[in-house]
Amino acid sequence: MAASSSSSIDALSQFQLHPSLGLIGASVNFTQSNLFMVIAGALVLALLYYGMRPRAMVPGRLQAAAELSYEFIQSMCVDTIGPEGRRFFPFVFTLFFFILFGNLLGVWPYDFTFTSHIAVTLAMALFVVCMVTVVALRLHGLHFFSYFMPAGVPKALAPLLIPIEILSYLSRIISLSVRLFANMMAGHVMLEVFGAFVVMLGSAGLLGIVPAGVSLAVNVALIGFEILVASLQAYVFAILTCIYLHDAVHLH
């Protein structure tokens, strides 16, 4: 673990990708990141399948959880996008719970957090922005480009305003992806750093016991904080997607 010169804490190797599922996984470059994507997806479907199996008029705990998750995302879609939001509900549902379960799985020790990879979050953000653009173009045709020139603005400002609007539109990809990736990565780096402190200080003798205990306490607090961040970032990703879809449907 101990590196040579600058730092003795290796906080980044936890993000390294490995092929999983043995030789078959290696032959198709199926990584442990993808394994956890499958687990997250399976958990989402299991929640829905086992939750809704009783089809009870008065739901039990698991069914109530499944129904609550359904209604939570549905009301998010309808409240944010409007009545047209029903069409996007399955997508937002999948997006939210894929990210949420990915984030929450990552808090579990030894689990891999696939949302801590910028490539994954960038792909999701890219897909969201492309989908939003396609929806807007399909609904409004070329009228969509009036989105970049807000109504009621003097024409003289157009040369300044239009590039800014286009830039802000495109920067959605960056903000959406970096927000999620950076939050997840930073949290896991901090967990690793304080975890290493516990080990290093704890093995440093009597003087190290107290700071090691403090580091352990910090890590416990961080775990709770990570659970909050995991839920919050999934929510932020989903609600921003809804807001972008609202803009696409209504053009401001």
């Binding site: 990708l17 490995h18 092929p19 198709v28 470059n29 199926f30 990584t31 990141s33 993808n34 994507m37 499958v38 997806g41 989402v44 479907l45 399955p90 997508f91 999948t94 894929f98 696939f114 990879h117 490539a119 994954v120 792909a123 999701m124 897909f127």
Partner: peptide, 18 residues
């Protein structure tokens, strides 16, 4: 190649889940 391959597999898994 794993960095990109995880995205490809991720897209497949996400599409399947959807």
């Amino acid at each position: 190649p794993l960095t990109v391959s995880q995205v490809v597999w991720g897209a497949i898994i996400f599409a399947l889940l959807y």
